[in-house]
Computed example of a mutant assay.
Amino acid sequence: MSDAKELPGAQPVPTPPDHRDNRLRRELPPEVPGRAPEEAVGAGEDPQPEPTGRQRLVQGLWPPRFTRNQLVVALLLFGLGFGLAVQVASTSDSSSALRGARQEDLVRILDELDDRTQRLEDEKQGLEKQRQELENSSDQAEEARKQTLEKERQLGVLAGTVAAQGPGITMTIEDTKGTVQADMLLDAIQELRAAGAEAIQVNGVRVVANTYLTDSGKNVDVDGNKIEAPYRFKVIGKPQDLEPALNIPGGVVQTLEKEQATVSIERSDKIVVDALRAAEQPDYARSSAR
């Protein structure tokens, strides 16, 4: 039979769907409708908030933009800060020795500083008095001659060309261990000068402004003159100022005692410093006074 017959009540068989089309639909993402730039901020969206003052400050400072003048100022400020830090550190180190001092020691140090200040004030008043006498004197030439002679005598004492006597102290340093060195004796001389010593003699050698001390084995040379222990200092000055200056905490006496040396100090109303130095004539310097 050539013609197909349909069975009664039969339904047409649907064509099976193409599975490849479904797989393609699942793999492709859905299209997102685009929008124009001018529609980015719609009627229902809020605009970006304005930056705050702090944010503007941060944006202005970072990243940093330096000019040459600003760099120079920054370097100068850094150098100033470094100098201040070093000064504070050195001050802390110098004051650390006084932190453990007793109250009476601190009072003695303050008294010594007051005495030094008073000596400088007395010297200033003396110079002003001399100036006033010279200005008010009827015979200014004679007054000038007297002041010149007095000044010459004072300079002779300081230069060691004339003998001197007056109140002061005698300090004796016993060094049986041979541990005392030239720098320790130099510290003693400097401390005595700071306390107002006007004339100093060590074992028969006059101490002047250009005196130097060097080590020579277990002995010490003063201006090329060898001296041996015990070291005896004859000092003219105010005893009430000289002795406390040597006994301050961490001072000359304590330093020498740490080196197992023995130090004794005696006050006296009359100390004779008779070691002399020859007056030296300078080779090149000449007085400019006319």
Rank of each mutant, 00 (worst) to 15 (best):
G250E: 05
R35Y: 02
V202E: 00
M171E: 06
G44Y: 13
A199P: 02
I236M: 09
A101L: 03
E191S: 12
A199T: 01
S2Y: 06
E191R: 10
V222M: 06
T15I: 06
V202S: 01
N136Y: 04
Q281A: 11
E45L: 14
A4T: 15
N69H: 07
G160E: 05
T52N: 11
L127R: 12
R290V: 15
Q240C: 08
S90A: 10
E228F: 14
A275N: 02
A4E: 15
G168W: 04
R99E: 14
D105P: 05
V263Q: 01
Y212A: 12
L186K: 13
K270Q: 10
L186C: 00
S287W: 03
R23P: 00
S287Y: 06
F66N: 09
D221I: 04
V72K: 07
R153C: 05
G156W: 00
Y231V: 10
N210C: 01
P12S: 07
T161Y: 04
L213E: 07
R232T: 15
E228N: 15
E174H: 11
Q48F: 15
Y284W: 13
S96E: 10
Q154H: 10
L24C: 00
D46C: 01
G217T: 09
E174T: 12
G83R: 00
N136W: 01
E143R: 13
Q87G: 13
R232I: 15
E257W: 05
E174C: 01
L75E: 14
Q140V: 05
V272Q: 07
G160T: 04
L76A: 13
P49R: 09
G237K: 03
T15D: 05
Q165E: 15
E135A: 11
D105A: 14
D93Q: 08
P30R: 06
E38L: 04
L256A: 06
G204Y: 01
E152Q: 15
V180A: 05
R56L: 11
L75H: 12
A89N: 06
A188K: 01
P17I: 00
G224E: 11
S216D: 15
R286T: 13
I248G: 07
R35Q: 03
R25G: 02
V72T: 10
A209S: 07
G251E: 09
P63Y: 11
A209T: 09
E38K: 04
V157F: 14
G160I: 02
R131H: 09
P37S: 03
M1K: 12
A195Y: 01
K270M: 03
E174G: 08
T176I: 12
E191N: 04
P230A: 04
V220H: 03
R145P: 02
R68S: 14
V205R: 01
Y284Q: 12
G217S: 11
N136A: 10
R119C: 02
N219K: 08
N136P: 00
P29E: 06
R56N: 11
K258M: 07
D46G: 03
Q240L: 15
L61Q: 11
E280F: 08
D241P: 03
A89T: 06
P249T: 09
E39C: 03
K151N: 15
G251P: 03
R108L: 14
G53F: 15
R54S: 13
S92R: 10
L76T: 11
L24R: 03
S92W: 08
Q140E: 08
R290I: 15
